[in-house]
Design a protein around this nucleic acid. Sequence first.
DNA 1: TAGGCCATCTGGTCCT
DNA 2: AGGACCAGATGGCCTA
Length: 352
Amino acid sequence: MTNLITMMSKRGDMSELVSSLGWLEEDLSSQDGEEGPDMGSNRSIGQGSEDMEDPEEDDDEDDKAGIDGENKAPKRRGPKKKKMTRARQERFKARRSKANARERSRMHGLNDALDVLRKVMPCYSKTQKLSKIETLRLARNYIWALSEVLENGQSPESHGFVEMLCKGLSQPTSNLVAGCLQLGPSAPMLINKLDEKPCGAPAMGGQSGHPLVYPSPGLPSPPYGSLEASHLLHMKSFKASVYEQHPSPNECGSNSTPPYDGPLTPPLSISGNYALKQEPSPHEAERSYPSHPPHYLSSLPHYAPSAVGGLPGPQGHLFQASRYELPLDIQAFDSFPPPHMVASQMGSIYSE
DNA sequence: TAGGCCATCTGGTCCT
DNA sequence: AGGACCAGATGGCCTA
């Protein structure tokens, strides 16, 4: 994943991206030099290198270390420092200022790349932004989970898929992901569509529709994320392409897959059984996936059934979970670009 | 208030 | 020489 970021932050991509934003130049020029941000300007004074100090003092120290500094630090090797004339000091300042601007720009590029990455993750919220580290972890998991789908035909709607996504994530992030994948602004529509499901296969609750258990009523706060429609499409098309070749027993034939007209099935289901002991899959061991302590599993939200009733049937309580209200700002997405492209590409690779 | 996250500055290293 | 990259340091902001 470090490579991913490195790749994304490579000069070309990022500078293009950043320059396309068009804000950087003004931003940088306004922040350069003494006009920099508070912390920065303070620090550049407080932390200033010795080059920034009084040139005379600087040289004197060097000399002292050489003359009577036998018991002190060893004499500095290398070329003797030139005197810091006013002009050199100015040049140094200018150079440092330029370097700072470049560094800022570089970090902005990195952050832009992270934002892009956030947006192609299976859940995205403008306000509830994933932290950098969580973004990277989720990306890692997402890649891992998708490759599982490709390699083993595992359903992206399966319990295991969500587990993979949540591995190693902090509890809040796990909550967010779980919430995103299970719930969404279109949840009521999902329910309606599911009611019409022609083949009668359980749409939620995992491939085998195993019983879903909500262990305790004392639950964490409701999920606060959402899955955008294009991601549902993403999942849908992805799944379709996979099961064209590997139809799952629970699926209607892929031929019956209707054209996309909105989210037909929730992309994933979450059983709420994360508290159960999780045996590492052979693939997990094989990939030497970092082991993870169970604490975050045991604290995942279990989406207690609300008291307001819900759909009957084995998956009813899951649907009830959709009665949680999501914060408005999180339901409001604007663009949600590349993931489906990625998925369709992967899908086409798979179907080759 | 502690801890997490972040932006920024900075100096060092490597590369072109 | 100058730019990119990196890691350490620092302080601000936010939240539990």
